[in-house]
Nucleic acid binder design. Structure first.
Lengths: 350, 350
DNA sequence: TTGTACGCGTTATCAA
DNA sequence: TTGATAACGCGTACAA
């Protein structure tokens, strides 16, 4: 059996008795082809089972029909990341609608390795890139400019003029969390922040500070966690050593909060009876915990969709939508409650 | 400022004073070019900052230099999936090593929409595809054959002759879980299975049945869950209504187990005091729960790496590694313990 | 509508 | 052995 070579546009042209150009016009729905001819061409294409060759199309259109996302992070951490799969799902659904693919790269090994991947992608592999995990003085801003590759920042860059961006204001949600705790009567509210340097770590911490300040509460203890939850456990233990001990802890991620709750449970500290806990992300298990976790939700899939739309606009030469999407919002469940003692120390019942 | 057009191979050739062909030979490290000439060409390329255009390379080599992974599942579920991010990370690290990209598609909307995406990818967008979420009589086997696109099954297909495959034997781990419970003295061991039809759902359930049979225990109650954890809660409630009530539950996923534990906690049932719980996957939070979850771990990243290696071999015309990787293994933590009552009801001191 | 040059790297052919 | 030349892959776009 001879290997049935995939039909090319030439085969379709011959079959329909027209030229290559006519086929191209007909299939891209452009004027200049008589209706009857167009119908004949479409029939031929269907009959032969012709599908445009992606490589040829990419070359002649000078477009890769794909977007790139480079994640510079130890691959193992992706398993514990709340943002990654949902953002990806959002991006993907949007790109699929217009026949674009997502080219994904996970790169470990420092800025040089990362830059090398950007260079590879810029050489016609993708039409644009998403920049996630923004940090202060992000070197990728220079990089994409030098590489002349369209880019979209996911989150608000420190210099928002430099690049189009789409962000979810997580500060609003974090502030709502602190206000919620203040309303419940908490005066000693600690914070476990995320990886230092990332803009969302900063924005969440600043929101926490703002919340305390507007309530006239001195800044409470703050410790630093990281991507996985393990640091959340350690951070929690160090907070418990504080004197006076915090009555509430605002974590920068659900995973750290979950790890923290385990430490509290192991120490015999009731949540929310003795200490209130707030997470961030609203991961799938958050509502399944005991107690269900009060947390801050952001619609990450919608974020992904919006980011994809913006990047598509950029690469298509249109004006991209840029700025904030719906802000993150507080989801109150059962891990927050009034603090154990009436208010402050004045009722020195201790 | 004139837009500094990216240099082409012709520019390099002119700069080095040789022909296009010579440049191509030199840069691909092939014989037929004098060492001095080769060095001159490489210098020119470096000086001009030339990087081969991916689109042109793909067209002339008739290779996309990318692999495809089509996930036919509601995008929203990716956020709660334990397999997806880790498998992806494993695939990605391997593909990156050889300069290949991963083209990802999430598709909702039934078999037709799915088939359409395979057709698109087969038209030169990728060189091969991963087939995950295998099910009995999987229609994709015919599809990839008809499309003549190299494919690798992730997991053991029902007909393992049909396609190269790489799997992790989760039955071994599930069986170990049941044996562990039997050794602890459990005689009423329930199972919450995953999405019906998937091969791993079947293999886990069969392992549970085998474990019970070899212990001489009649098959206990079994209920069906799904991808997200919510069904795990409902399933657990229905198991609690069983009489006599199970003393242990083996869940087909950690997420369902976590949801189940919340139900148990809400009902005032101690874990593991009253009921033992076993999960599956060993997600990041499993060890962070209270109590830490006994579960079955499979190295999903290694699975991804191995799958990528096999698919690369296939597309490179080599003999792919196929078959089982290291089996899943039981991780005993604190959610399992002897049942509350001595043995059965008869105290049959076998 | 047709014919054909073009995009750009690869490779077969052939001359030196 | 070295290297130039030209055909090739396949869809697009413009002149005719």
């Amino acid at each position: 059996m001879p290997s049935p070579r995939r039909p090319t546009i030439t085969d379709v042209a011959r079959h329909a008795g027209v030229s290559k150009g006519a086929v191209s016009f007909a299939l891209n729905g452009r004027p200049g082809v008589a209706d009857s001819t167009r119908a004949r061409i479409l029939d031929s294409a269907r009959e032969l089972g012709w599908v445009p060759d992606h490589r040829a199309q990419a070359l002649s259109r000078s477009r890769a029909m794909a977007m790139g996302w480079i994640i510079a992070r130890p691959a193992r951490l992706l398993g514990a990341d709340a943002f990654f799969p949902l953002f990806l799902a959002g991006v993907e659904t949007r790109l699929s609608e217009v026949g674009r693919a997502l080219v994904l790269h996970v790169v470990e090994g420092g800025p040089d390795a990362e830059a090398a991947v950007y260079r590879r992608l810029a050489a016609g592999r993708v039409d644009g890139v998403f920049l996630t995990d923004l940090c202060a003085n992000d070197p990728r801003f220079d990089l994409v400019e030098r590489l002349q590759i369209p880019a979209l920042a996911v989150g608000r860059p420190c210099d928002p003029q430099r690049l189009p961006w789409v962000g979810v204001d997580d500060g609003t949600g974090a502030l709502a969390a602190v206000r919620h705790l203040v309303e419940l009567g908490h005066r000693r509210i600690a914070h476990v922040q995320g990886v230092p340097g990332l803009v969302h770590t900063t924005s969440r911490r600043c929101a926490w500070e703002t919340g305390l300040r507007e309530a006239g509460i001195p800044l409470g203890p703050m410790v630093t966690g990281n991507f996985d939850g393990l640091q959340g456990a350690e951070a929690t233990r160090s907070l418990l050593a504080w004197d006076p001990r915090p009555t509430a802890i605002v974590y920068a991620s659900d995973l750290m909060a979950i790890a923290g709750m385990q430490v509290l449970a192991a120490e015999g500290i009731q949540v929310p009876g003795n200490i209130s806990v707030v997470g961030f992300d609203d991961v799938a298990v958050a509502r399944l915990l005991h107690p269900p976790l009060t947390t801050v939700r952001h619609d990450v899939m919608a974020w992904g969709r919006a980011a994809a739309s913006s990047l598509l606009a950029i690469t298509d030469g249109e004006e991209p939508t840029t700025g904030w999407l719906d802000p993150a919002e507080l989801v109150i469940r059962d891990s927050t409650a009034p603090p154990p003692k009436p208010l402050h120390t004045i009722t020195a019942k201790d």
